[in-house]
């Protein structure tokens, strides 16, 4: 008696399996690319906000001194 789980796959079954694996790999690749873009954009926004904060703090004592 043969065990269906250890039987070699037929060519159409193997092709279907490869297609599913390819779709999963492609989806993972897209997720990784999206994460790179997301983290890059977050970094830019955070750096800009920090720079604006530093500039505001630097100008604050000057204003205080002028009063």
């Amino acid at each position: 008696m043969t065990d269906p789980l250890t039987e070699p796959l037929t060519p159409p079954e193997l092709a279907a399996l490869r297609a599913r694996q390819r779709s999963r790999s492609l989806a993972l690749a897209w997720v990784l690319v999206a994460l790179v873009v997301l983290f890059f954009a977050i970094t830019l926004v955070k750096m800009r906000a920090e720079r604006a904060q530093v500039a505001a703090m630097a100008s604050a004592p000057a204003k205080d001194g002028a009063q």
């Binding site: 399996l17 599913r20 694996q21 779709s23 492609l26 993972l28």
Partner: peptide, 12 residues
């Protein structure tokens, strides 16, 4: 179905 053959839609 063989578990290793899950598609991205299944994870979604």
């Amino acid at each position: 179905v063989e578990p290793a053959s899950a598609e991205w839609r299944d994870f979604f």
